[in-house]
Design a protein around this nucleic acid. Sequence first.
DNA 1: ACCGGGATGTTCT
DNA 2: GAACATCCCGGTG
Length: 208
Amino acid sequence: MSGVAEHPRLGERLDRSFYRRDSLEVAPQLLNKVLAHGAVAGRIVEVEAYRGEADRASHAFGGRTARNATMFGPPGHLYVYFTYGMHFCANVVCGEEGEAMAVLLRALAPLAGLEEMRRRRGSTRAAHDLCSGPAKLCQALGIDRRLDGADLVASDGPVALLDDGTPPPEAIAVGPRVGLSRRAGESAALPWRFALRGEPCVSRPAPA
DNA sequence: ACCGGGATGTTCT
DNA sequence: GAACATCCCGGTG
């Protein structure tokens, strides 16, 4: 049974065709969409595009492995990975199967289930800090490795990406991706991070 | 405000 | 053994 079905007013699921495009095109269009896991949901305010085996910053660089298998699969699925010994991060798989394109979800503005978020994240936290980072939002929504590969399009999928009718953002801040290391090389400077301008829930201040 | 280090374990060299 | 698409807390200015 899907928890999302208990809250149909949050919006309508995006369909497969939404994801079947270059991650650079999908990324800015994910802003203002809604990510929901059960009764807990937030509006997407910050994302980053990763673009397949040629992208030195991507987990897909160097080809398919056990960890990144979901990225090489069909679009419209969730790629969840574990990092730094304690955190999970979530991506949306884009493009065509085998292209290994994805969009990292970096921050949400909390919409529903704030009590549950606070219980998972720690009760002393301000609302704007519940989902203001890629690992924070996974913790707040209860997303972990069990949800790697979850289908975002299937009506009974445990995680949903929804359009709730909010219009596309008027002002999008664009800048370099966050947290990349030496291996990323020159691609670390590419402006593939997108955020809502003036949004308090982003993981760090929007670039100029 | 900024900066540094520790937590913690999976993945890849 | 090193690196890691991070986060949190405690130091200093």
